[in-house]
């Protein structure tokens, strides 16, 4: 220990001190909550209807099973979103005059689907299209609810990709074109790989939001997690299933958020 420089010794002392203060203040806040909250007049009633262990035990397995639907919807919409977003981003980037309509389409697409609240789109598409009286597999609310999510999210992800494409320095394009590569090849081999890599953390945020927004489909029929919790709430006149559903969502979204933060931090450390 004697090998520590004065600066190191000072820093170590400071570190210990702030750790001690942080722990003490955290404990104080927790203790205050623990003693004060149960003193609230309605606490017993709230505890019974929101944090009821017996209800949770009974409903949790079914809630988990319902969550499989959320996972499934998420899993099949994600690749569709990525493909569609890429197509839209490329549409907005075309410079050839003959393809100008594509550019207009791309702009319209992002304006409309970013401008309409997701839930409204879920209603419009989820109720509207099955209302056309399509035959059996084509009138499924799973299908059209997923389509609504894909449309909304691909508009957002397309914008993220587009800003990524624009962030690649023009000297990269110049280098590629000076070697005789076509514009398409330049985009494919030089610009896009860099753009996508740069935007992974930003896209992670949309992926996390998508995980939660899958629950919006509960409004048009599929018995996924939120819908299932709703059923139990009505059945048992108890809100605990909602808390159970929240916990299940958090189990997925918190690790995903942390991972996104990690990616972002890693990217920053590479750049500097």
């Amino acid at each position: 220990m004697s090998a520590l420089s004065p600066r190191k010794r000072y820093e170590q002392k400071e570190r210990r001190r702030s750790l001690l203060i942080a722990t003490a203040s955290l404990l104080a806040v927790c203790a205050a909550l623990y003693t004060l909250v149960p003193k609230a007049p309605g606490w017993v009633a709230v505890k019974r209807s929101f944090f009821n262990w017996a209800v949770l035990e009974k409903t949790f397995p079914t809630l988990l099973k319902a969550f499989l639907w959320d996972i499934a919807i998420f899993a099949w919409s994600l690749p569709l979103i990525m493909v569609l977003a890429l197509a839209i981003a490329l549409c907005r980037n075309v410079k050839t005059p003959a393809l100008f309509p594509l550019r207009v389409f791309g702009a319209f697409y992002t304006d409309i689907f970013r401008g309409v609240p997701t839930i409204l789109l879920v209603y419009l598409i989820g109720f509207g299209i099955p209302g056309l009286g399509l035959p059996r597999p084509w009138n499924s609310p799973y299908l059209w609810g997923t389509v609504a999510l894909v449309l909304t999210y691909s508009a957002y992800v397309a914008e993220v990709l587009r800003s990524g494409i624009e962030s690649v320095h023009k000297s990269q394009r110049a280098a590629s074109e000076s070697l005789g590569l076509t514009e398409a090849d330049t985009m494919r081999f030089v610009v896009l790989p860099q753009a996508i890599r740069r935007q992974v953390p930003a896209m992670m945020n949309f992926i996390i939001a998508l995980q939660k927004d899958v629950a919006l489909l509960s409004f048009i029929g599929p018995v996924e997690l939120l819908r299932q919790a709703n059923v139990y709430k009505s059945l048992m006149a108890n809100f605990t299933p909602y808390v159970g559903a929240a916990v299940i969502f958090l189990c997925v979204t918190i690790p995903a958020t942390r991972y996104a933060d990690y990616l972002l931090a890693k990217q920053h450390s590479v750049r500097t």
Binding site: S171, A175, E177, R197
Partner: peptide, 20 residues
């Protein structure tokens, strides 16, 4: 310009290698 560019090589001040 493409057929001529491939006959004329250029190297830039800032290297401009593809970082990925």
């Amino acid at each position: 310009p493409k057929p001529y560019r491939k006959r004329i090589g250029i190297v830039f001040q800032s290297f401009n290698l593809f970082p990925h």
